[in-house]
């Protein structure tokens, strides 16, 4: 879905945003709640400049009033694959963005993300996955690596991977798999998204074990939750 259509559908006229260098920044209102918006558009690769821009937007909001609502819209083709980006320390830029989002959450911000396009690799870790809850549209494309590439790197025949991906959510692309694994709270219609967020805001933020617990219940990751609690209580 194009971000223009999505935002129009979500907020109608109650929105003010800009897109520059594939970074979306703005403010909007719905049902008497104010929202700050940020995100990545057009399946852009997340680079140093973009990460910094997102981080600054959030830092400024924290400075203004730490108790704010933030929606992160995700459509990214992954991390910027360039020597220049890595030369200047892309991992530090990503980490900075991550720290800023978590810091905002710690200071009382309510942060949610919505995957409305692609969410690939390191860029998903840097942005969307730091929200308290992650939602996805039905059309979302979520992957660490596509199966063809995975087959090439692991030298496991593609047929075998395809066959196994029918029964296991653990490695194959697809938003449904990330639901089973507990990361995506639910696949959601655009129309239902903001009401869901309003309801989330009405309650407390989920615990740090939220994903693992969901994964256990949904059967996507059966070991993670047990191992973590076993280690904590060792």
């Amino acid at each position: 879905m194009k971000y223009q259509d999505l935002l129009q559908q979500l907020f109608g006229n109650e929105i003010n945003y800009s897109v520059d260098n594939n970074v979306l920044l703005g403010d909007a209102a719905f049902d008497n709640q104010q929202f700050s918006l940020c995100g990545i558009v057009d399946a852009a690769q997340l680079d140093n400049v973009m990460s910094l821009k997102l981080a600054k937007f959030i830092l400024d909001k924290v400075n203004l009033d730490p108790k704010f609502n933030l929606l992160i819209f995700i459509d990214t083709g992954g991390q910027k694959t360039s020597r220049q980006a890595e030369l200047l320390g892309l991992n530090r830029y990503f980490a900075h963005l991550i720290k800023v989002i978590h810091y905002a959450r710690a200071k009382g911000a309510r942060v949610f993300s919505l995957v409305y396009g692609s969410a690939l690799g390191g860029a998903f870790i840097a942005a969307g996955l730091n929200a308290e809850k992650v939602y996805a549209l039905a059309e979302a494309q979520i992957a660490v690596m596509w199966l063809e590439a995975m087959s090439r790197v692991t030298k496991i025949p593609l047929v075998r991977l395809e066959e196994l991906s029918k029964s296991s959510a653990i490695f194959a692309p697809g938003a449904e798999n990330f639901v089973k694994l507990g990361v995506i709270d639910k696949i959601i219609d655009p129309a239902a998204f903001l009401p869901q967020i309003i309801s989330d805001i009405g309650g407390a933020a989920p615990s740090i074990n939220h994903w693992r617990e969901l994964a256990d219940v949904r059967g996507g990751r059966t070991l993670a939750n047990k191992i973590v609690s076993q280690v904590i209580n060792d």
């Binding site: 720290k99 996955l129 730091n130 995975m150 194959a172 798999n177 740090i208 693992r212 993670a224």
Partner: peptide, 26 residues
């Protein structure tokens, strides 16, 4: 980085690890 044979679980585990690290920092 992520173990490709369990890529989704690995990516999520890394995000969960980051969240835990942030708690230590806080």
């Amino acid at each position: 980085g992520v173990r490709l044979h369990e890529a989704n679980a690995g990516e999520i585990a890394i995000s969960e690890l980051i969240a835990a690290i942030i708690q230590l920092k806080l």
